[in-house]
Design a binder for these strands. Sequence first.
DNA 1: CATATCTATCTCGAAACGAGATGGCAGACA
DNA 2: TGTCTGCCATCTCGTTTCGAGATAGATATG
Lengths: 322, 322
Amino acid sequence: MKTLGIAPRLGLFIVDIRQLRYFVGVVEAGSFTKAASILNVAQSALSLHVRQLEEAFGIQLLVRDRTGVSVTASGARLLERGRSILREIQLTETELTNTVASPSGEVTIGIPSGAARVLSGPLLESVRSELPRISLKMIEGMTGPLEEWMAAGRFNLAVLYRTAESVGRMTVLAREEFCLVVPPGEPPFEDSIPLADLYAFPLAVPMRNNNVRRSVADVVAQHGCMLDVRFEVDSLSTIINMVMEGKAYSILTPSAIQKEASQGQVRTVKIIDPVITRSVVLAVNPKDERSPAVSAVRKLIPKVANTLIESKHWSATAPDRA
Amino acid sequence: MKTLGIAPRLGLFIVDIRQLRYFVGVVEAGSFTKAASILNVAQSALSLHVRQLEEAFGIQLLVRDRTGVSVTASGARLLERGRSILREIQLTETELTNTVASPSGEVTIGIPSGAARVLSGPLLESVRSELPRISLKMIEGMTGPLEEWMAAGRFNLAVLYRTAESVGRMTVLAREEFCLVVPPGEPPFEDSIPLADLYAFPLAVPMRNNNVRRSVADVVAQHGCMLDVRFEVDSLSTIINMVMEGKAYSILTPSAIQKEASQGQVRTVKIIDPVITRSVVLAVNPKDERSPAVSAVRKLIPKVANTLIESKHWSATAPDRA
DNA sequence: CATATCTATCTCGAAACGAGATGGCAGACA
DNA sequence: TGTCTGCCATCTCGTTTCGAGATAGATATG
């Protein structure tokens, strides 16, 4: 059977994975410049590749203007197809590389800003050294949105807070006690303060839907006490800066100000009568439980937490081994 | 929401389309060397790329031995996934480029060696000039296997032969008359010869399952005549060479020896009492009928055939415009 | 008018690619 | 036993592709 014809090399394609990645990235970012930042590729490279894609197809895929880009009808079709192709490639790679003996791939974890301050560095180091083929993607945020996004399946894993004794199927990483965070050189100078006396200190605290805020508010209400909330700020670093600058006090857990406290930039005073505690827990997305990569990270995190607690890098209580 | 992590460039993949093509090609060919020939790529390039793929995945995909390659379990999975990915890419490109206004993509057509001799060149030229975005892949062969492969859906289109008046949904391109192909300087010297007199000439003809052979055999049997078949050869060029060298006569249609006849290398003598005719038809694969590219080629072929007939480059009769 | 933001183009060094040559290995054959 | 064949792996080198960085042009905004 003799083949005749003008066909070029058998099976050569117009598109390439790199070009699909770039194209999809540009569309999703809404501009070449933003996509360049996200994809960590020069804007000019993106511009060139997408233009080459358009020339190869012989159709315009993007409308460019001063505010960025949008897709044409053809571009919308390529976007859909491109996403599907890239997803299939990703699944293929995961299927072939992600084994129990050698877990690999990307694992996403949501983590509150407070816990991130003690956990993120050591966790990333541990994953890097013990699970070298896993790419851990850590998304830090306030707990309100984190809870929502975890419920929506955005992460494989999430570090969350719970005040109830029962935490269901989640793993308890640590128990923390809230404390008054005090500017350096300011009263009170005792090691502890009764809850009833907190009203004397002007507070900067997170917004109402925040776990920290709700946990403390509940206990205060139960004890018929009052708090002087002067500032509501949904930025942990802003709150800490205000305390460091003497503009306010706050009520946080030690993990949130571990570094600043150890450097003398703030002081912590234990709250008693009653002590206000909460659990730091690890949740796993049910649909990801079987993934070898997610399982491996899930097993690693408690170890990292224990190490931090035992070495006093994290002022918290390890969970009982019940 | 701040993203932390050790992820390399976002979305970099292990595999590339080129590597998938190479890997799938090697597995399907059963050896690097055969795949090199099919893919028109150096064997060393295939070897290198597949090895890089294995290193990137950290798994062995192929078992190599002296007779070629076979896949491991992981390789079988990648093969399956790879085929799916390549197919999806192909469909994507077709969807985006193959429009009625601008048909594009690959069209495959099977064509018998005889018809190929007058049709293939002009058809390729016409497609190249009138349908520049279509890659026509023409597969030449003897009619037996061609019928099988068309029935099996291997081609989008096929040029076939029919002796019956009714050709169903196929398009008649031309009607040809069989003639005796005579070595130069040999008898008979008349313009025509009765069927009953053919027994005097030693023949080289195709194998029994060949359309030419069957067409003539049927008529000969119907008229109670005999033929002196000395050689059965399933190679048209070999048959023609034997005639040119005076080793045998043959019974063919003019398209098969159009060039040699016009150059005086063979002569043709019309067979009469009766005249043996057949139709050259164009079949389309039902599943491809809607494809803009296949439709465009389907419409072009009759025009090319008509032009050849009218310009006497093809000694055949144009079909009636009924 | 100056500034900011975005895309397109150009240059150049680095990386990747593939052809061709060659070597090694194993089986078949005279 | 030596030779031949077929297959894969490695190397060299020239070519092609890629992307960073610089820069220019266009447009909207303060």
